[in-house]
Write a protein that binds this DNA or RNA. Sequence first.
DNA 1: CTGAAAGCGCTTACAG
DNA 2: CTGAAAGCGCTTACAG
Lengths: 331, 331
Amino acid sequence: MGHNNTTLKEIAALANVHISTVSRALSGSPLVKPDTAERVREVAKRLEYRREMLLKGVVSGKTFTVGVLIPDMSNSFYAEICGGVMEYLQRNGYSVLLGCTNFSANEEREFVDLFIAKKVEGIVSVSARYSDIPHIMPAVFIEAVPECKEITVVSIDNFGAAARMAEHLAEMGHRRIGFIGDTKTTIQRFRGFSAGLERFGLILDPKLTVIDEERMEKGGYNKMMQLLQRPVRPTAVFCVNDYLAIGALQAISEAGLRVPEDISVVGFDGIQSSAYVQPPLTTIVQPKEKMGQMGAELLLKEICGERAPGGRVVLPFSLAERKSAAPPRSE
Amino acid sequence: MGHNNTTLKEIAALANVHISTVSRALSGSPLVKPDTAERVREVAKRLEYRREMLLKGVVSGKTFTVGVLIPDMSNSFYAEICGGVMEYLQRNGYSVLLGCTNFSANEEREFVDLFIAKKVEGIVSVSARYSDIPHIMPAVFIEAVPECKEITVVSIDNFGAAARMAEHLAEMGHRRIGFIGDTKTTIQRFRGFSAGLERFGLILDPKLTVIDEERMEKGGYNKMMQLLQRPVRPTAVFCVNDYLAIGALQAISEAGLRVPEDISVVGFDGIQSSAYVQPPLTTIVQPKEKMGQMGAELLLKEICGERAPGGRVVLPFSLAERKSAAPPRSE
DNA sequence: CTGAAAGCGCTTACAG
DNA sequence: CTGAAAGCGCTTACAG
């Protein structure tokens, strides 16, 4: 009952050795006679000794802690990536200090200060816009904007995936294809989609694109409503993320139209609910958990010097063809 | 560039005072002449001094860190609660050490050991089945099973909410009402639902209930399929969580039946996607973020001695009437 | 292989 | 208000 505050000193007393020997035995140093080490470990176990990792940090610099930064816990895309990061870290003996930035560069900076103070050994940052972290300590970015060489980034080929989706719609026969985006999502998806259309001699018509700050369902709903009120209606709409697409689905249904009969809608990310909305969303599925694990793996390698900072790891995506996209009806 | 490792000693040198004075000035002790304190703080700022929170812990015991345990990051119910916990903690100057238990009591125990070693000041545990933590340090449980007096718990009235849902269905005219559950979900929902039915002279028919280990969509799908193959088909089914309900929706649709025309389906929790599935789910909405915040608040109060451990805080739920439940068709 | 000692960066009675 | 000193629990050269 009460906190366990067994100290090396107590163990040393009971094991009849010097405190330094206890320290060494418990940290697995080879400089201890196996018998002695064994005896020490037994006493430690009996006293329910718990290593004071925090204190080890004072001298050794190892805290076995990593800072993880995500923009928003309730966005399942981030939550899943975070799950992957944590899974790998925990499996490898590291703990996670988690911070929620709410997409704010300022909050990110504050967390980095905090993380430094808490002596994390490195940071995994999800969907950050910009960051100084790599100048300060080992860091890896997942799904990040920065395209700089010195920064380690894990992501899919956003350009290629968006292009692929554009081609998918064009191949179905769509010619008037809309674009719904938010200002924070990677510019690559915009460019890639545009490039995909161009391969079919199509262009991203400004009259069919709506981009603003909002990135969740409500934003998708509002933007789709705007599109529906314009003189020319698209036969298909690409949304840069699934939340936007889900909102778009709602708008279309409220307007008395059907998906995909009247308008096809496709998303991006492949969040869990994308498969459950009606109709199930055709979307680009990102390997979210895998991305998280990979990010954690790269960070740990960098921390223990097995890997130099920088470089981009590109993971494969897939195009899930579900029910929200179909060829346009004869016009 | 590089870690910032300014020490009190350096600051003391530049500010021309003793290290103890620096220590006091920086921790806001009143035992320092305002001028001196000011000067020290300026030097500290100039050197970009960062408090070594970890070290403070050695002597003062304050680490301003709390451990948070959740079963599964990719379950949006837990992610949202966790978001609430973190929001409150961060706003109050505490950091979060996060652990994912995968519903395992063993992993929980390991995390608690780890958290102790890292000197967290308390623990918030989400949906734990059982725990010793309150005997060790301040702890609060969110959505937990333990009904023991000495444990601080934050939850809704699960019994009442389930009863309310039973009444809702019975009032619509349903008489053959099914139950789909998982073994881990609070027994209160089972009892409450049962009690609600009894008020209408109905019983929870064993032939219309399926309960097993699975708690996600797949489990809902499988269990609904079982129900559909039984001789008597229910006109409405209560699922103890929304993921199960979403899976049930799929099964019904695959069986060529419609919701709510052929069968009504209702859920529990009110996860985000419950509003977006087709038809939108009638469900009990738990105030997930609020529950998280409240849990964090109680813990912090307990840590600083403003509150005695124990007690249950019951937050209000609401019944979201959407499209997945309707009166049964005339039989 | 082991111990004695110095030191990590900080806090806190104790004196003044 | 301030400094000198002891101490927090642990690690790690240094000697042996």
